[in-house]
């Protein structure tokens, strides 16, 4: 008999609770996809195509598209519950395989965007709060405004124009040069390059990820900076900060040990929310930079009415949102001992 702590039980509960959620999301995605005009066969064959009505009917029969909708849904749910995500109607490959290939690229991009956002947003926010109305504060405020208001597609294109086309520092698109790929371990090329100690691959992959990560992360960096600034301003006027100084704690440590940790609580909420949208909202950036991630798979599949792929991807998105939420809540309990799961 394994004994679990209360926290572990709570975590297990929340993970199990994602199963009905995933099914619900699958149903919604199913219904929405069917509500769109045209089906995969129409799209594949194109309008006014040479294919005869009989051939198209045969294809629909093969894909199970001639069954009544509720029967299709029922069959789909049964398969999903059995752990089978189905077969792509267009790519003739198992959906699970497609997702397994694309998801690591998306996670990698989201993680790097987030790292960029934190690395820029937190120091700017802290510096702005420590010296309100200083140059850093004003510059941070203006840049934040730009960061949240510039659309990603514009930023991405300008970035490519400057850094790839004009200066030639960075590649225009893709994830890694074909001949630089490291051995496949996790599917995240940067991680794989680090694990295998493959420095050329690492350098190449980092060059590729720079522009997309900055494009995707800039807006988040801006919001992180604003939220960190305001929570830091609250915290530094707290009594316990003054008390820490009265203990003789040096100013730098007062900021790091006493202020930052408490100020991070609102930032963590924000990061949890934003990380979900970095994972799920990067279709545009993936498209601009030819990033072979889930966002692009979803866009392509929607256009092709590739029902099983879209449904499965949407489920993956929903699950990542829930898991990120859980991770956020766990980080909370670490930062604020008053909170428990």
């Amino acid at each position: 008999m394994i004994r679990l702590t209360r926290t572990q039980v709570k975590i297990a509960e929340r993970i199990l609770a994602t199963i009905p959620l995933a099914l619900g999301v699958a149903i919604v995605a199913f219904v929405f996809m069917r509500a769109m005009p045209g089906d995969p066969v129409d799209i594949m064959m194109g309008e006014g195509a040479w294919t005869s009505e009989e051939e198209m009917a045969a294809l629909r029969d093969e894909m199970g598209l001639d069954e009544p909708i509720h029967a299709q849904l029922w069959a789909y749910l049964k398969r999903v519950l059995a752990g089978d995500l189905g077969y792509s109607m267009i790519r003739s490959r198992p959906v699970a395989e497609i997702i397994r290939e694309a998801l690591p690229a998306t996670i990698e991009l989201a993680v790097f965007s987030l790292l960029f956002a934190l690395a820029v947003g937190i120091p700017v926010g802290v510096a702005s709060a420590l010296k309100p109305n200083s140059f850093v504060d004003r510059a941070g405020a203006s840049l934040s405004l730009l960061g949240v208001s510039l659309p990603a597609f514009w930023l991405g294109i300008v970035g490519v124009l400057i850094f790839s086309m004009t200066l030639g520092w960075l590649p225009t698109s893709g994830r890694i040069a074909y001949d630089a790929q490291p051995a496949h371990i996790t599917g995240m090329v940067i991680l794989d390059a680090i694990i295998t100690g493959n420095l050329p691959a690492l350098g190449n992959a980092l060059k590729h990820i720079c522009l997309p990560a900055v494009t995707l992360g800039l807006g988040v960096a801006a919001v992180v900076a604003r939220v960190t600034r305001s929570s830091m301003l609250d915290v530094i006027s707290a009594d316990y900060i003054q008390f820490a100084r009265a203990k003789g704690v040096p100013e730098g440590e007062v900021t790091r040990r006493h202020a930052l940790r408490n100020a991070m609580i609102p930032t963590v909420t924000l990061v949890g929310l934003q990380f979900g949208s970095l994972l799920g909202g990067n279709m545009i950036v993936e498209t601009i930079f030819g990033w072979p991630g889930l966002g692009r798979v979803v866009v392509d599949s929607i256009f092709a009415r590739d029902y099983p792929v879209v449904q499965a991807s949407v489920m993956v998105y929903a699950l990542t949102f829930v898991l990120i939420n859980l991770a956020t809540d766990i980080i909370y309990t670490v930062l604020d001992p008053k909170i428990s799961l």
Binding site: D239, Y240, Q242, F243, A244, A246, K247, H258, N262, K338
Partner: peptide
């Protein structure tokens, strides 16, 4: 050394 008025707010809530 100094002791503050309100211990509720003068102790750091995040540290043991």
């Amino acid at each position: 050394a100094m002791v503050f008025q309100d211990p509720m707010t003068a102790l750091n809530p995040a540290h043991r």
